[in-house]
Design a protein around this nucleic acid. Structure first.
Lengths: 121, 121
DNA sequence: CCTTTGACTTACCAAAAGTAACTTAATAAC
DNA sequence: GTTATTAAGTTACTTTTGGTAAGTCAAAGG
């Protein structure tokens, strides 16, 4: 992992690239984070919690996360419909890493903002 | 951080959102990872190491990371030009978290791939 | 029968990212 | 003494990704 990073990077089989490409979209990480905090949630609940995600993209994001095995989807055959989402064990195992990243963000936002201001000038 | 995540999420001042929005682009995390591995690098070196990033997006990504204070940029007034990039202390402090994420990706890619296959059917 | 409800689709539009050609100025090659 | 090369970009144009707003579905309530 330390030596031939070059080959790792350019390869389409690079695990980091493979997963990063998938989570490098606009909403996936945030959805995992929210489900990690609140446990089981319904579609509109996730939508409102995040606030500025479109229905379309939330649908796409949840389907992708389901396909990847990070989120489970349970449909209740009622009218109006009820669909509940929650993290799988795989999804849960990712949460601490996102929390670490979030904590870093929290700790360093001040410095980042200062830097952004300086750069403008 | 545990209770009012709702307010955190919808707020534009949410540190997580603020930083995630910035790193949720396609290349930032990867560039930090590469610079973290190799130390000081020139533009074309980063470009070749990643392999499939366009010059345009690498320029944009590096400028953004510089504005955020994660990467430093040193121009040598030579012809042809030489520009060296490296992580700042802030950028370096982020690397371990990305490594953790990369390790998770590495450990779980098999399960993710299996899940993706199942989902197709 | 007309509205409401939740979880979506769909058609259309805007923003982000990719592609390929162009720029710059000093050497090196012809 | 033109022409090619070189590194780090920029620019114009195209494709991909994401956003917006309206429509769908079927039962229950008025």
């Amino acid at each position: 992992m330390e030596k031939n990073i070059e080959k790792f990077m350019t390869s389409t089989d690079c695990p980091v690239r493979n997963v990063l490409d998938r989570f490098g979209d606009k909403w996936s990480i945030l959805v995992v984070l929210v489900l990690g905090e609140k446990g089981t949630m319904r579609f509109n609940e996730i939508n409102k919690t995040i606030g500025d995600v479109s229905q379309k993209m939330l649908t796409v994001t949840l389907r992708t996360l389901e396909a990847d095995g990070l989120v489970s989807r349970q449909v209740f055959p009622e009218i109006p419909p009820r669909v509940e989402y929650e993290l799988t064990h795989l999804g849960i195992s990712l949460v601490p890493h996102i929390h670490n990243l979030a904590a870093w963000a929290n700790d360093n936002l001040g410095e980042i903002r200062t830097s952004r201001e300086k750069f403008k000038v």
